[in-house]
């Protein structure tokens, strides 16, 4: 990397882990390009917010073009935006699984694809996707969500091979439940049962997610790609 500040794109920066990551990496000297459906109140000289739906191809392409126009580079993409929904499969309307796949799978795919186009020019890039322990734990009530994240793991593994020659690594972090809005609607008894299945039975913290991301995006992690790290010993 040159002396110029590194540039990172993070999806879903209005709140939760995305917001936390944006603030952290701004403090670390990154230029952060964030996005969410609504406006964000994060103000920093090196932060720019894009209002968009991550599943809207045109909007994603426009955001990436704006990044290229402004900085001529993109070092890191964190595909953080995601939605979850808990429902028995027999009660899950098609519209719900569509919405989940649009954000979690199509959004991740579009951002990763467009980011790789920018990263390929400089033969350097780090892409981190977000998986979930709901997939390996086969959580009842999470079929649509876990399936969407299983797709993210597959995208991660195959894309890693396809872009390795461009100096780009693609990995995924699989958090345990972290107290954010995403798990807010899940009943406490369910959460307790889930956490009991982890090797280390506690809630994840945002700092735990950050730790894995920081490992993946280190310059020295150029031999680490196509991996999904699940937290909590799942």
């Amino acid at each position: 990397m040159s002396d110029q500040k590194p540039v990172m794109a993070i999806t879903g920066t209005r709140k939760g882990i995305g917001r936390f990551l944006a603030e952290h990496f701004l403090n670390q000297g990154y230029i952060v390009e964030g996005c969410s459906r609504g406006e964000a109140d994060l103000e920093h000289d090196d932060y720019r917010h894009h209002c968009l739906d991550v599943a809207d191809e045109k909007s994603v392409i426009s955001m990436m073009h704006a990044i290229y126009r402004s900085h001529k580079r993109l070092d890191v993409l964190i595909n953080n935006a995601g939605i979850a929904s808990m429902n028995h499969i027999m009660l899950t309307p098609k519209s719900q699984i569509e919405r989940i796949f649009e954000t979690n799978v199509y959004g991740t795919f579009l951002f990763a694809r467009e980011a790789a186009k920018l990263m390929g020019r400089r033969k350097y890039g780090r892409i981190v996707n977000t998986a979930t322990v709901a997939t390996p734990l086969k959580l009842e009530g999470e079929a649509a969500y876990a399936a969407s994240k299983a797709a993210v793991v597959s995208l991660t593994e195959i894309m890693a091979r396809e872009v390795a020659g461009l100096g780009i690594t693609v990995n995924a972090v699989g958090p345990t439940p972290v107290p954010t809005d995403l798990v807010g609607s899940v009943p406490q008894a369910k959460m307790d049962a889930l956490i009991a299945r982890q090797a280390i039975p506690r809630y994840g913290e945002m700092a735990d997610v950050l730790n894995v991301i920081e490992f993946f995006i280190r310059k020295e992690s150029d031999f680490v790609t196509g991996q999904t790290i699940y937290m909590g010993g799942v």
């Binding site: 920018l118 390929g120 020019r121």
Partner: peptide
Amino acid sequence: LVNLVMMVEQNIMM
């Protein structure tokens, strides 16, 4: 080839 085509797309846009 893929990289070249992507560069061309970006150059045209710029």
